[in-house]
């Protein structure tokens, strides 16, 4: 089966049930594509076997850049380019540079890290997300299993999901167009077909 097109979706209600289910399913040799939840669930990323987030490193690198730039800018301007005599004080009054250096560090670290986050997760205003179940932003915990990426058959995976106490199990297929939907087609679809699914009605 082709990858990234045919999925089995399992719906869970409780975060602890989900954590046990993830453990069980991975233990049974099934590869989980992704889990979509309405709120962060701690240790879920660990159960799914994800590597630790590299956001702290991004923040540090951007922050260090901010510190360096701010010190270079202030010493360059005040000490080299146009030294000014202010009360006979040192041109390079390092303590005076602390506030601006600190602010620049924080500014660059925050913006750099948030930028990295948005790029890493592919989040931007013109994104048309591929959603498995709209209730995943409301109260349901939605697990997606890529049939094309698993050696077990659909029925076998269904059985594993059932054993793991999934409340609902259904198959979801995406076409090539669904998988690479542009914002324009999303917009045209929205205004020609209208809103087809809403979690307000699904529940």
């Amino acid at each position: 089966m082709e990858k990234n097109k045919h999925f089995l979706v399992g719906i869970f209600d409780d975060q602890d049930e989900l954590l046990h289910a993830v453990e069980h399913i991975r233990h049974a040799g099934v590869k989980i594509h992704e889990v979509f939840t309405p709120y962060p669930i701690h240790t879920l990323e660990h159960e799914l076997g994800y590597k630790r987030s590299y956001m702290p490193r991004a923040a540090f690198l951007f922050g260090a850049t901010g510190t360096t730039l701010a010190i270079a800018m202030q010493s360059g301007m005040m000490g080299i380019d146009w030294p000014m005599i202010i009360g006979g004080k040192s041109f390079l009054a390092i303590p005076d540079f602390v506030p601006v250096t600190f602010e620049s560090t924080v500014l660059l670290a925050s913006f750099g890290m948030v930028g990295t986050f948005l790029v890493a997760c592919g989040l931007h205003p013109l994104k048309a997300p591929r959603l498995f179940d709209r209730r995943s932003t409301d109260d349901k915990l939605v697990m997606a299993i890529d049939l094309g990426n698993n050696s077990l058959s659909e029925d076998q995976i269904k059985a594993v999901l059932k054993e793991a106490h999934a409340n609902e199990i259904y198959r979801k297929d995406f076409t090539d167009e669904d998988n690479s939907e542009s914002f324009l087609t999303y917009l045209v679809d929205l205004f020609t077909k209208g809103v087809t699914s809403s979690s307000r009605k699904l529940n």
Partner: peptide, 10 residues
Amino acid sequence: FGWDGAAKTW
């Protein structure tokens, strides 16, 4: 921003 609530994003 096209949020989908994936565990990795969280």
